[in-house]
Amino acid sequence: MLAFVIRRVLQALGVLLVVGFISFCMFQFMGDPVEGLLGQEATEEQRRELIERLGLEDPIPVQFVRFVGNAVQGDFGLSYRLARPVSELILERLPATLELAFVSAIIAMALGIVLGVFTAINRSGFAANFIMTASLIGVSLPTFLIGILLIYVFSVQLGWLPSFGRGETVEFFGWRSNLGSWDGLRSILLPAITLGLYQMTLIMRLVRAEMLEVLRQDYIRFARARGLSERAVNFGHALKNTLVPVVTVTGLQLGSIIAFAIVTESVFQWPGVGFLFIRSVEFVDVPVMAAYLLLIGALFVVINLIVDLLYFVIDPRLRSDRAGSH
């Protein structure tokens, strides 16, 4: 178990180093940091001084080591566009993104599992077939279109929900949250659904497929032969076994939810890191882009790690080191 954890952590660090290298390369190939920081009207004197200060004439490996060292301490330099520390900018906006991702993941998971189980159990029913067909539409529509459609229906036509921004937020221990007020909840609903819809259909289809597979297993037949009720068979036995592989995929989806938040945040002008990233791309604000890339990479890696450990908790076959057979 411990060996497994250590191995996974080392792998994770390796992945992060690669991601770090890619973000570092952005500085080399995109824009000119000196121009970015000083503007075009700077004197030769100022330029020379900045190059000196940033160490831009050092050999590349030295620069990379310095970049990694700074990044580990949370220092990503100054934003070219806003002239403020990148870490500050990101920390300001991270809660908005995390909360949005969290709420959509909850929606996606809850609905995805419920609908997946429903369509698996009522395999040939009308409702199940309808849901499966509808989910195809959900998968094939691009996120921004879904967002715009939702805005059109619920904000423009019905006027039920706000179409942009976070609305009223409440601060808990320095974390600005949407979940503390009615207005905040109303504001997060549309973007969360938009962001989670694709994942929901994915989870639903996965749960359905897994559940159908599990329902074919001998132990389900045996559970029936023992006289257990359909409910006990479906939920006591089949669902639990279905969730083992679903956990992995769902966990990894959380990573992509955060990454894909870029589009949703732009559509709903949600003040999160994704929105920040889009703006920094417009202005070739390399430090912000690099930091964002690293952040997403780190999130993926951490989520991966947690999912692997969760696997251990759920599946006793992986957990035990006192196996009786084999």
Partner: peptide, 8 residues
């Protein structure tokens, strides 16, 4: 091997 639910 297959008759028993591995998770219970």
């Amino acid at each position: 091997m297959a008759s028993l639910n591995p998770l219970l």
